[in-house]
Structures are given as structure tokens and as C-alpha cells.
Computed example of a mutant assay.
Amino acid sequence: MTSPFPIHPFAGLLPALPDNELNELVADIQAFGQREAATIWTDEDDVTWLLDGRHRARAVQQIGRELRTTHFEGTEDEARSLVISLNLHRRHLNPSARALAAAALATRHRGGVSGQPAGLPVAPTQAEAARMADVSERLVRDASAVMKTGDDEIIRAVANGDISVTAAAATIRRSRSDRQAATALFLSHRRSSSSDSWLTPQWVIERAVACLGRIDGDVAAAPENNVPATWSLTEEDDALTAATWANPDGSPSRLWVNPPYNAGGRGPQDWTRRVVAEWEARSVEAALLLLPARPGARWQQELARFPRLEFRGHLTFEPGVGNPARERWVSGNRSEAPFASLLIGVGIAPDHLHKHFGDAGVVYVAHRQDSMDSS
């Protein structure tokens, strides 16, 4: 599903509608029209984003109608506050998400500051916002600490219910910096999910097949084997100890690699290095690696020579069998991941990666000094 405007990350701060509620929205718009305009906003680079109304955009696209919009004038901080406040009473949110919305409302400039954009009412106090959101003032104070980090991953994780607002605020207050707090929260979340199976979204797999031409091997296969590979290695097969990742007949393979993200605290380091080694040894012809975006990680820096796609927004991974989140998924509560994702193309040309995934994100290639010297 596409939108006539790129969807701003702020629009994904709160959980996505489950499929059953999205279908109800489609039916309502088809019967009665789009009751509420979506909100667009233009940033300092003159890019116009869809700020609020991503589900309305999907709904009208499904039934072939034009999206009705209204333009919001305000700063980036005000845009973030608007997104959360608009969702405060629209959805059945968990207490942590309601506390975030209340904190956003209470941090607006009070007293009708000159130049405040239209549509932003005078801010309530934290106590008033807490009553509006039906949460305690203490939770709003915790949520305010989370909002002040300015880190969308922390905010998203709290809004989705992956981390409680109380636990997030406690980590932030114990840390010496917001970035340290963000790292601590991510590591905590990663450890809590270390034994869980998370399946790659089907639309990503379908495009991966088209990009690679075929998938010979899936070396980090889930028990469900949801990737259409000729052969696969699961956790029980211990792919990292296999002698080679070439095809059984010895020919170079084309691989899909979505490795476990915990790996003893090192991230996917062992997996990424093994893929590169196999490619350099010509046992692997090409590989697509789906990884969490971690710019400071050594393993990601080691992959810089290969083209990478940075997905717009956050992917929605399906919990596999045995995952504690499976029951919530089946009931229709389907949250996006609290981190951004990358797709690395080993042995794949940037133009080819862009051809198959360009509308889902942005393809980047590393700067090469020799190309500048010869120009």
C-alpha cells in the first residue's frame, strides 16, 4: 500500500491498526466517505510528509479514492506532539501509550505563545493531561522523561507496549545521557526477545526472491520455514559450524540471511562476517541480509562496502510459533518493531537493489575516494 506522500516516522510512533480495524475503516470510508482529513506537514527541506492518517491513506488507496488532507504549520517538535495528541482518544491505547500522549500535550508552550501555530491549544498541566488520558500524574512524569530523549525508538517501544513507561523512565534517570539510556533499553529489549522467533514480513521475502532470482539457501531459517528456499539451516543445524554455505552440489549459492539479533550480545557479527567470507571464497554468489540498523556497530561498519537499503518506517515482524507475542498477534494486535531495519546486498549491484526495493526505502553506497580522484 502506498501514500501520495511519504509517511513521516512520527506517524509510526503509536501502534498500527490491527487488520480487523483497518478493514472496518475501509468499509466505513467506502460507505460514507473519508470523514476526517489526513494531516500533511512540510519540513525545513521542503519535503511534504504524511504526518497523521496513514491508515486513512491505506484505506482510500485500497478503494481507489484520493486522500483528503489538511496542512499543518508548525515546528518539528510541535508536529510530534500533534501526532500523539491526535491519537489520544482515537484508539484503545495501553496506559504507557496514553501517558506518552499526555506528556506530549503537557510539554507544549503554555499561555498562548506568540506565533504558536493554529490547531495547537494552550497546553494543559501534567495533572490536567493525566486526567484527560485517564492515567496517573506519575506516569505522565515518567512519559515526559521518555519524550525528552527525543529518541523515536524508545518512544515507539513504549507506545507499542514492548517496554513499560516506568521501566523506560527508570533506565533514563539512571543513565548519564539520553543516548546511553537508548542503548540500555535496546539491549534490554533484545535480551528479552533472545529466544523468540520473528518471521520476515512476506512482502519482503517476495521481493527478495525477485531480487536474487531465486533463494537457494536460508541459513538462519525459522522453524516455520516461511522462506521459499531450496535448502535451509535452522537453529538445530547450527549454520555457523557448517563447512560451507555453497549449494549441496558445490555451486555458489544465493542466500537469504535474517540472523538472530542477540548472538551473545554481539549482534549479528558472526553471521555477517561469515556471509562476507563465503562470498569472497566464491561459495556464495549473492546474499541479502536483513539486519537491525546500528550505525555504531562494528559489524555494520564492516559491511559499508556493500549497498544497503534503509527501510522507511519500521517493519512488522510476525511472532513465530512459541513466541510469547504470538497470542497477541493472532488476536490482531500487531506492533511494528521498535528499531529500524537495513537490507544489505552482498554481491548485488546498487541499481538492482533499488529496482526491487527502492519504493520501500533509500539505497546507499559508500563514498569511494578513488572515484573522486579520477574525476
Rank of each mutant, 00 (worst) to 15 (best):
G12I: 03
L13V: 03
P15N: 13
R35S: 08
T48G: 08
H55Q: 15
T69E: 04
F72T: 05
L82F: 09
S85K: 06
A102C: 04
L105F: 09
R108M: 13
H109S: 14
S114T: 11
P121D: 14
T125Q: 05
E128S: 10
A129E: 04
D134N: 11
S136N: 04
R138Y: 10
R138M: 12
L139P: 02
R141F: 11
I155W: 05
R156C: 13
A167Q: 10
A168I: 10
R179P: 01
Q180E: 15
T183G: 05
A184E: 06
S195K: 12
S197I: 15
W203R: 12
L212F: 05
I215Y: 05
G217C: 06
P223A: 09
V227Q: 05
E235W: 13
E236C: 07
A243K: 15
R254S: 03
L255V: 00
P260K: 01
G264W: 06
G264I: 06
G265L: 08
W271S: 00
T272D: 00
A277R: 09
A281P: 12
L290A: 04
A293L: 09
R294T: 03
W299V: 09
Q300P: 00
P307S: 07
R308H: 07
L309V: 02
T316S: 14
F317K: 00
E318S: 06
E318N: 02
N323V: 04
V330I: 15
N333T: 14
R334D: 12
S335K: 12
F339P: 00
A340D: 14
I348Q: 04
L353F: 01
H354T: 06
Y364A: 04
V365G: 00
D370N: 14
S375H: 13
